[in-house]
Amino acid sequence: MRKRTVLLIIYLLVLFFPIYWMINTSLKTDNEILKELTLIPKDLTFKNYAEIFTSELWRSSFMNSIVYVCLNVIISLVAAIPAAYAFSRWKFRGSHHLFFWLLTNRMAPAAVFMVPFTELYYTLQIYDTHLAVALAHCLFNIPLAIWILEGFMSGIPREIDETALIDGYSFPRFFAKIFFPLIAPGVGVAAFFCFTFSWIELILAKALTVTNAKPVVVTLTVGIGAEGVRWGLLAAAGVLTMVPGAIVVYFVRNYIARGFALGRV
């Protein structure tokens, strides 16, 4: 037991060293970063953060990211919940192949789809909007959400559906009042993963936006600019992009713990 705890702590230290290093870098002056190696900033500065917060570009790109990620989570869940219900409850014609086909969507490399996406969304006149990125990210999030939710739903006995319907619940009411609360931890876990993958995706987000919906991940790469790399600023922006994710994890931690306790991820 002790040995395991020690191993775990060592692993967590390794895991967090790079993150610590980035925070460390973000609080240093450019001079210090380039001159010497220090474990804690000698000359503590919040200049990098101040620059980001006062810049309209950074602020708007943060908002853009949050908007399209949330939009994607909603679309993914709305589409995935009924599909997962169907896969978990019925064996219908083609269901087996369909499931594998849905999974293969996730395999599609974003780089491959970059150009066709651009063309299609130009035609649909949603290029450079939040919706475009949100829809594009459904490519890999819907299959994942269906798969996670299907696991959770299969763990809920069919008898519950049957009893409720016999008791005179209409299907939508049964779904909202009885079934949904039962799979809530599963929805939490699925939402968490959709959020994660949409938040960190770069290629499609970059290809589908110009200015109006430009996400923070793209702004970050722009930061590697002509005047040489500004490490402190980049690190600060990197730290800030981790913040929304950390907040999400913190809020859904109980759902995730419960979801994991059900053993159905």
Binding site: L15, F16, M22, F195, V217, G238, T241, G245, R253
Partner: peptide, 18 residues
């Protein structure tokens, strides 16, 4: 779970920056 979840939420390009 939270500690393990945090690295997953770091965007790819931030990983590149790290």
């Amino acid at each position: 779970l939270v500690l393990l979840g945090i690295p997953l939420l770091i965007p790819f390009n931030v990983v590149g920056i790290i």
